[in-house]
């Protein structure tokens, strides 16, 4: 049914998106908490930096990553020397590009749900002897699960669709960085491959629909569990 080429593109896309989301989730929760509850100098600046990838052209992000993380770039060279990790022109690089582009979406969703948690509940927990870490883990975190979930799904969908930053940073290498959008781009560039492009297009729509419907029902289930209204 699916060609080997298509399966490769799909698995690579899923791998990149999963890695991007799971890698950035803890940071996203932390930044979201800082933005929602923190009171510090430079908060508007942090907020602006976090949201930057949302408004910058993806190609700019890809270019910046290329400068910073390529083998000659300051971070890339450092990582090769001390960590023996080279992410340039690899699927990890694609994951990093996706993570950065999707980050603001994840932070926004989580931040909104943290803001919706009644601060008075957290206050009550601290009068019961819970330190701030315990308050966060036992009260805040369970109550924002639906927000985390929608943030994760949004970021996952955005990662699957990532094109500009990826192709700029890690190029379009078959089996290594050629995700679904990049594969489609290749077919469109190739004369006579319109049908293959259309197949990939339908696949992309299918994956997105499954993710969105799945997240919707999961979110409903979570909300019910929190509110306990059946």
């Amino acid at each position: 049914m699916l060609t080997e080429f298509e399966i490769q593109a799909i698995t690579l896309s899923l791998k990149v998106a999963f890695s991007a989301v799971s890698f950035s989730l803890p940071f996203a929760i932390f930044i979201a908490w800082l933005l929602a509850r923190g009171n510090f100098y430079g908060k508007p600046l942090l907020d602006a930096i976090v949201h930057l990838p949302l408004v910058l052209p993806p190609v700019v992000i890809g270019y910046l990553l290329l400068i910073g993380f390529s083998q000659q770039g300051p971070i890339g060279a450092w990582m090769i020397e001390y960590l023996s990790i080279d992410i340039s022109f690899s699927w990890q690089g694609a994951a990093l590009a996706s993570a950065i582009v999707a980050f603001p979406l994840m932070v926004r969703a989580i931040k909104l749900s943290i803001e919706a948690v009644d601060n008075k509940l957290e206050q009550a927990a601290s009068t019961l002897g819970a330190n701030p870490v315990k308050v966060f883990i036992t009260i805040t975190l369970p109550l924002i699960v639906p927000g985390i979930l929608s943030g994760v799904i949004l970021a996952f969908a955005r990662s699957l669709g990532e094109f500009g930053a990826t192709i700029t940073f890690v190029s379009n290498i078959p089996e290594i960085t050629r995700t679904i959008p990049l594969a489609m781009y290749s077919f469109i560039q190739t004369p006579g491959a319109e049908q293959q492009a259309l197949r990939l297009c339908l696949i992309a729509i299918g994956i997105a629909l499954i993710a969105l419907i799945g997240s919707y029902s999961l979110e409903q289930k979570m909300r019910r569990r929190i509110a306990h209204r059946n």
Partner: peptide
């Protein structure tokens, strides 16, 4: 002393039970 170290109980106007 931080709130959680005071060992002082507090019953608020609203019960503030944890919904989950």
């Amino acid at each position: 002393l931080a709130v959680h170290r005071r060992e002082i109980g507090y019953v608020f106007q609203q019960a503030r039970l944890f919904p989950h």
